[in-house]
Amino acid sequence: YETDHQDYCEVCQQGGEIILCDTCPRAYHLVCLDPELEKAPEGKWSCPHCEKE
């Protein structure tokens, strides 16, 4: 399936195990989030940028 999400972390610009925001195209490593997450959230997730909106 096709997605318009970026394939690198918004914070460190590296690829790998990233989680995708359900609201925007941004993607993040769990450890690059502040506060960092230990595991990917279940269900819908909005990144810090979208949470501020």
Rank of each mutant, 00 (worst) to 15 (best):
Y1C: 14
Y1G: 14
E2M: 15
E2Y: 15
E2L: 15
T3D: 11
T3A: 12
T3W: 14
D4R: 12
H5R: 14
H5C: 15
Q6E: 06
D7H: 04
D7C: 02
Y8P: 15
Y8L: 12
C9L: 01
C9I: 01
C9D: 02
E10N: 15
E10A: 09
V11Q: 05
V11P: 12
V11S: 15
V11N: 10
C12P: 00
C12H: 02
C12W: 00
C12D: 02
C12R: 00
Q13P: 08
Q14T: 14
Q14P: 00
Q14M: 12
Q14D: 10
G15W: 07
G15Q: 08
G15S: 11
G16R: 12
G16E: 11
E17W: 14
E17S: 03
I18H: 11
I18G: 11
I18Q: 15
I18M: 10
I19T: 15
I19P: 00
I19K: 15
L20R: 15
L20C: 09
L20M: 15
C21F: 00
C21D: 00
T23N: 11
T23R: 07
T23S: 10
C24W: 01
C24L: 01
C24M: 01
P25K: 13
P25D: 10
P25R: 07
P25Q: 08
R26P: 01
R26T: 03
R26L: 13
H29S: 00
H29D: 03
H29E: 01
H29W: 01
V31K: 04
V31D: 06
V31I: 05
C32L: 00
C32T: 00
C32A: 00
C32Y: 01
L33K: 01
L33H: 11
L33P: 05
L33G: 03
D34F: 09
D34C: 06
D34I: 04
D34K: 03
P35V: 11
P35Y: 11
E36H: 06
E36C: 09
L37C: 08
L37N: 08
E38P: 14
E38R: 07
E38K: 06
K39A: 08
K39L: 10
A40P: 10
P41Q: 02
P41W: 04
E42P: 06
E42F: 03
G43R: 07
G43K: 12
K44T: 10
W45Q: 04
W45K: 09
W45A: 08
S46Q: 04
S46T: 11
C47E: 00
P48C: 11
P48Y: 10
H49K: 11
C50V: 02
C50H: 14
E51M: 03
E51D: 07
E51K: 11
E51I: 03
K52G: 11
E53V: 04
E53M: 03
E53L: 11
